[in-house]
Structures are given as structure tokens and as C-alpha cells.
Design a protein around this nucleic acid. Structure first.
Lengths: 272, 272
DNA sequence: CGGTATCGATACCCGCGAGGTATCGCCGCC
DNA sequence: GGCGGCGATACCTCGCGGGTATCGATACCG
């Protein structure tokens, strides 16, 4: 199996559409069809069931999809690590705007370590765990249960309660605490592929948008304590009694054997 | 990076000789030289330093070598798992002739589990951890400190003392215990590449050979308790006071997310 | 029920690049 | 200084990856 074949397969498996996948890969559709067919032939199993109207994954296809994603992630990570061996550095992924203080403390403390390497920050709008899987980052600061930590090694750093973000004019804004069931429809965030799951609640894709929607009374949100500091005028945060606690964790790929990652994790867990 | 390039690079990095590597890959030497040069050019770093008399790894090359090995292992594992998704099975690597009883108990106990899958045994003469790295096996029974468990997830199962294997006629054969320093030169086993580290002591490559050498008074060995049961006539086992304990462990690749592996590990640790 | 649009498969062609052979240039060695 | 071993270079060939055109199947529509 060549990585080219895996890239092609992942594209088709994610798009479930040969035309769009070919488009995304920047090639024409026929060679893509042929490559997938060859791959299936060599593996001796069907990866996709196609009618002329619908493409779907077989069980084998689902297995190969997850395997292929980790392989391709390992490949890009290997390229980066090989390229930057002279000037070793660490890429840390974190949510833009979140946990600023924790991050500053962590970076300072790590920089003071003997043998510390340069830390590059990769700030993500969302889905902070993805760079870990596709090899663009070595470590990430994630927030359970929002971020998926499947297949990652994790150390908890900090746990905090969640708050409902409401317009100051909202009937519940004066309460000392509220329950999930009392809240209006929560805003929805995009999935990794950019689409939105169906459901009630407005669709937003960043904090500014979200706050505006809440101010306008069009949405509500439940978020960890940290966002309170940056809350714009006219919004209030009310503790939510029955929301799960949010745990800030430091996560890294399980096969990571880098000294720098180990140091950073040690420092992070040290002052939590 | 294509897996073909990685396979080629690993071959050269292991042989440190373009001719032999090309031979091993079943291609001619010039295309191999060219492919490596292209790879270096695309990565923007030198992977190998070559004089016309000697090839050696650069630092970047050493990094890529370990990365490439895990990637190629993941690829073969992915192929196997995809191919066998209909008839899920687990490949367990173990040392041939070692821990027979433990193995039998483990397999029986696991087979009784609900949702147990077929377990294929991969019996190795030595270097039982290699199939884990190259994707041929999902789990392995290893023996620390003999087997390398770097980069693997591990659960200890059982610890046992070591015994010196001596001919019955040896002066120390009657002692109740001996020390390492008292023993004659120990036999040497081959490295993964088939070569032998330099040093005193005869070279052997299996148990039969070893026992014969000991019987002939040409070698001694220090081995865990289990081998006592299969000891041929004329050899005795004497406890060694200062030999490190041997720990039998169950090991698996850290990125393994298979239900079957988790079940087997749980069963194994359960009755240890 | 025919017309049409959509989408994957097939047929066929082209050009690049992987792989082969021959040879060169360099270097350690007798 | 001649020789042998080894990686690099030059050059050719052919297979395969990628392109265009088209087919065949199917859902949708009037």
C-alpha cells in the first residue's frame, strides 16, 4: 500500500463521492476510481459499496479509514520531525482564546527547564485534537468532554464547572444557578468536516458570532468558567448545576517518544 | 512521502550499503540511489553521508529511520486488519518453547470470554517484539529485560528468578546458589540482524545448540526458571543470587484500539 | 412512461518517472 | 601505481498514473 492510495481512499471515504473526492485531490475522477479498485483488488476485500447514486463504506473500509488516518498522520509528523531535527521544536495545539493563562504559565515553566526546545503554538478555532492525529502538532491542550481524546495519551490538568452564557435581559440571568433543561436551544458548532449536525439552535462558527447571537437572544451556550473573563458587555454567566465538569487535559499521540513532549507533560502536570 | 521511498530508505539505513540494500529490495542500485537522493531533496535534509567507501546515517536519517519503521509497521498491520475484518483474529507473538503453561492458561481463559476472537500464534525463535513493530502481530508475550519494550504498552504478568545452567560435572553444580562473577563465559545470542556482538563466549542461535555447548563445557547460560522443566540429562540449574529478575509481560502497540487486544490484556493481567 | 441529470465505470491515449544497463569517478588497499 | 569495491551519472525503455470522452445505471420529473 502506498500513501498515495491511502490519501485517495481517505478522500473518497470522507466525501463518499468519487467526483468530489477527485476534485479535492486535484485529479480527475476516472484515475481515482481505478486506484481505489486496484487497492480493493490487492487487499482482496471490498472497501466501498457503490451504486450509481450512493457510495458507502463497508466494514473493511471503515477499518482501513481509521488505520489510514493514523498512518497519514504519522507520515506528515515524520516529515516534520525529520526536517526540523537540527532546530528541534515542539508544536503545541491549543484552542484560540481559551485557557490563555494556563498556557502562558505552562510555556514559561517549560522554557525554564534545562533542555527546553522552542515551542511553536498552533491555535485552532476548534477540533484542537486534529493536528495531533494528522501530525501537525506534538502536544495539545484539550477540553474533555468536548474534544475527542480517543487514541491519545492524556493527563488531566484542571477541572472546572460550566456556566450558561445568557443575555443580561434573559429571565434566568438573575438566578444563582440554572439547569440544562431550563435553557433555550444551544448554539451548534460545525463538525470537523465543516458541516452541522441537524437539530435546533443556530449555527455559529466562532466566539464572536456566538456572543452576538446570544446578545440578540437567538441562542444560548454552556461553556467553561474561563470564558467569563472575556465576556462582552450585556452577557452574563450563570452556573449550570447539571452540566458535566470540563477537564482541561494535555494530550499527545501514544507513540510519541520525544524527550521534549515528556518534559512538557511533566511540567504541565507538575503545577496543576 | 510514499511508503516505497520509506521501504527503500529503511533498507539502505539498515544495510548502510546501497548495493546490498538494492539487492535486498530486488532492484538495481542506481534507481535506489536516485530515490534516496530525491527523498533527501524533497525533505531538504541529508539523511545519509556517503563516501565511496562508507555510508552512515545523519541525525535526520536516524530520526526518519525510527519513524519509517513504525509507519511501515502500521501499514502492514493496517493491511492485515483490513483483510481479516470478516473473520477477526488476533495474532499473539511468543517465544517458541517459553512460558508454555502461561500461554495455555491465557488462551483458555481468553477463549472463554464473551466476544473472544480466534487467536493465531506466532512463535518466534527470538526478538519476539519485532512482529509487534512491523505489524505482523497484535500482542506479544515478552520477557524483560531481554526483550526491548521501547515504544510499546506493557503490563507485567509474572516475575521469576534466574538460574545458571551448568553441566552436572561443573564445580559449581552442587552449590545452592552462585553469583554472576563466578560463572564462566556466557553464550552469545544473535542480534536482530543476525550478527553477533563481539565478546567472549560461544555463539549459539537456539536452545538445542546452547544445551549442547553447555554439556560440552564450552558455555554457560543464565535463564529464567521456566527452562528447568525442559532441561536435558546432564545439565543442572543453580539459582543466581545477583541476576536481575525476569519479568514476563504482555505488550502491544500503543495505538492499538482493538477490543480483542484489550480483552486479552485484561484476561492476562487478571490471573497473574 | 419517456426525458434528463447525476454519477461511477470503462475505453483509450499520453507523458512522466521508476527501473534497467553501462560507465564514470573516487577512494582504500596490496 | 594498479586494482577492486562502491556510489553517482548518463541514458534508454516501458509501465503506470493521469487525462478526455463516453457508457450504463438510477433517481427524479413532467
Amino acid at each position: 500500500m502506498e500513501t498515495r492510495e491511502l490519501r485517495y481512499f481517505v478522500a473518497v471515504a470522507e466525501e463518499l463521492h468519487f467526483g468530489r473526492a477527485a476534485d479535492r485531490l486535484g485529479i480527475a475522477q476516472p484515475p481515482l476510481s481505478r486506484t481505489i479498485a486496484q487497492l480493493e483488488h490487492r487487499l482482496g476485500v471490498a472497501l466501498l459499496t457503490r451504486t450509481s447514486r450512493k457510495v458507502s463504506l463497508t466494514e473493511a473500509g471503515a477499518v482501513l479509514l481509521t488505520e489510514a488516518r493514523t498512518i497519514l498522520g504519522a507520515v506528515t509528523a515524520a516529515e516534520r520531525r525529520t526536517r526540523t531535527v537540527d532546530r528541534p521544536s515542539l508544536v503545541l495545539a491549543a484552542k484560540a482564546g481559551g485557557s490563555g493563562e494556563l498556557l502562558a504559565k505552562l510555556l514559561d515553566a517549560y522554557a525554564a527547564e534545562p533542555g527546553a526546545v522552542a515551542v511553536d503554538l498552533l491555535l485552532c478555532e476548534a477540533h484542537t485534537w486534529q493536528p495531533l492525529l494528522d501530525g501537525r502538532a506534538d502536544v495539545a491542550i484539550l477540553h474533555e468532554p468536548f474534544d475527542s481524546t480517543a487514541g491519545l495519551d492524556v493527563e488531566p490538568l484542571h477541572a472546572e464547572s460550566q456556566y450558561a452564557i445568557l443575555p443580561a435581559s434573559h429571565p434566568l440571568a438573575g438566578e444563582t444557578q440554572v439547569r440544562m433543561a431550563d435553557l433555550p436551544d444551544l448554539a451548534r458548532w460545525p463538525e470537523p468536516d465543516g458541516s452541522y449536525l441537524p437539530g435546533p439552535g443556530v449555527e455559529v462558527h466562532n466566539l464572536t458570532q456566538l456572543f452576538q447571537m446570544i446578545t440578540l437572544g437567538r441562542a444560548a451556550a454552556v461553556m467553561p468558567e474561563v470564558v467569563r473573563v472575556g465576556l462582552p458587555e450585556g452577557l452574563v454567566a450563570v452556573p449550570v448545576a447539571d452540566a458535566p465538569k470540563v477537564t482541561t487535559v494535555i494530550a499527545w499521540p501514544p507513540h510519541s517518544r520525544s524527550r521534549a513532549v515528556a518534559d512538557l507533560v511533566r511540567v504541565a502536570t507538575g503545577f496543576s
